[in-house]
Design a binder for these strands. Structure first.
Lengths: 299, 299
DNA sequence: CGCAAAAAATGAAAAATATTCATAGAAAGT
DNA sequence: ACTTTCTATGAATATTTTTCATTTTTTGCG
């Protein structure tokens, strides 16, 4: 009764604004779409659009269908792709979602040996999710979530795979450069450089500065790690990054890692999967590979 | 390319064990099914079943399709029902999911006036979810989640609608019955009666006993509130429940609420919805009704 | 073993469905 | 007012699905 074509039409009409335009995209005639939808409307007994002049406005039922289409069609499309991958003899695509910027650097180190181990598995990395990483896992948009905030919920399985310390990064000329650690009060006058993330989600803010009632003088947002570190090296600000990441750049750039507070900020990277996927071999292998110490891999 | 019928066939063949049997259920002939699937197999280029003698065994691709079918078909079926509801002039069904036992008692108080206010909306309550309450929200299994653990994730919106105190419940004859409050140490020898939930998820355990290093002598599990309270009244154990719930039973049963620790344990019930549903009127109305003080309703 | 039963595959025919074509009607833009 | 831009619709056509009739393969069983 309710077929894929109906969902496609509803979605495409919404995107293009008219039946006629949608017909072009779907490689059908306007008439075909009109007939199809009319038939569905008769079958279910309710209109999907209000015909207002020469334009269509979704009814309540139509809006519901649109939401359904936006949700199901991508899954069907992904399924078609995946079937073709099976046909091509590939195992499939491991679709990885990421929720933190520095995770990306870490991930690269894992993906590279993984691709060697599993030549018939493709890896795809996504970073934007309508409903966040967890939603993407539930919706089968991704198969694996890399995140600093695990969430133990039924149906999902999280595992810590990597421990690291989040440190402050300053230029080698900075007055603090030699200190054994820094206190929040010492950062009041600084420019804080970070990835484009709301300040509330930054560890250096919510675990270090905010509890002490300190705010940075200014907050600057930069997309890439390299540029961020160049800014820091040239004394234009400070930032916070994983220690291992800073150490990798330390010989090429004039930057110094510093412990945040006496105890430092300890962090972990977690991998999350759907419980039902727990025994897919190539997924299991990824998690196991990720768990192996980074040292062994980065050699 | 990949159509609903293919998913239906895969699912039904799995359920009934053969194409022939599936054909009966789907009101088609065995031949029709065979042709349909053959065509799909040719299109995607991979077999879906291994033909072993006169039986079919799913290939990897087939298993993948089966998982897809089990996931998508229920959503399509639900959508068809819902469209017909729209057609019948009904507003739809408000599907409520619940993640905590005592929430149920509270929910009943809200649902009753809601049904009066919205005669053309049906209410359905579900309690079991493959992927937990959050997963059910994301998967559109439910429209509203009642839970004590909110989760601020993009795409979801949680709101506290009800505050209550979680208290210890003892029989009127119990030695502690007159105390102003209880300390964890006083419960070391007791039998703890609870709903069937892992002990780690119980507030009385993880917020009260565990931090003090105390374990109850024994943990007994009971399904219903009434029986639980009868057990408590007869001195066979203690339990923890919302204060308002205990007070409702207090005149019929020999039970006494006691504060847990000096400060007590404060709890809240949250309602979670999908952000995209935020302006569905009958959903909004439910949340608003739920927010109104319980006193006003239970009168 | 040989035969009946059960299941899937297949080709051709029939039925059903979807699509197009041609056109009408309605609204919006100029 | 005229042109353009939409959607709707009926009839004709094309395509797809389904059935029917049969074949092939396998399995169970006396």
């Amino acid at each position: 009764m309710l077929e894929k074509i109906h969902l496609s039409i509803v979605r495409e009409v919404e995107r293009r604004g008219s039946l006629t335009a949608a017909a072009d995209v779907l490689c059908l005639t306007q008439s075909a779409l009109s007939h199809s939808m009319k038939k569905l409307e008769q079958k279910v007994g309710t209109d999907i659009w209000l015909r207002e002049g020469r334009s269509l406005r979704l009814t309540q039922a139509g809006k519901y269908l649109l939401a359904l289409a936006e949700r199901l069609l991508p899954q069907l499309e992904r399924a078609e792709e995946r079937l073709e991958q099976y046909a091509a003899g590939e195992r499939g695509t491991l679709c990885i979602g990421m929720e933190c910027h520095p995770c990306y650097q870490w991930l690269l180190k894992v993906v590279s040996p993984y691709l060697d181990d599993w030549p018939d598995v493709d890896v795809d990395v996504k970073q934007k999710f309508q409903f966040g990483g967890i939603g993407a896992l539930f919706a089968y948009e991704i198969d694996l979530l890399v995140t600093p905030d695990p969430l133990y919920k039924p149906g999902l399985r999280f595992e810590a795979v990597f421990d690291y310390e989040q440190v402050l990064v300053v230029g080698r000329q900075h007055v603090l450069a030699g200190a054994p650690h820094v206190d929040p009060e010492q950062l009041g006058g600084e420019v804080l450089i970070t990835y484009p993330v709301e300040i509330e989600r930054l560890d250096i803010y919510n675990q270090f500065l905010m509890p002490a009632g300190i705010s940075p003088r200014r907050h600057r947002v930069i997309e890439t790690t390299e540029i961020m570190l160049q800014m820091v090296a040239s004394g234009r600000g400070i930032t916070a990054l994983p220690r291992w990441l800073v150490e990798e750049y330390a010989d090429k750039m004039e930057v110094v890692p510093l412990r945040l507070g006496k105890k430092g900020i300890a962090k972990q990277i977690f991998l999350g999967i759907r419980e039902s996927d727990a025994d897919i071999d190539y997924l299991k292998a990824f998690v196991e590979l990720a768990r192996r110490p980074a040292i062994a891999r980065s050699a």
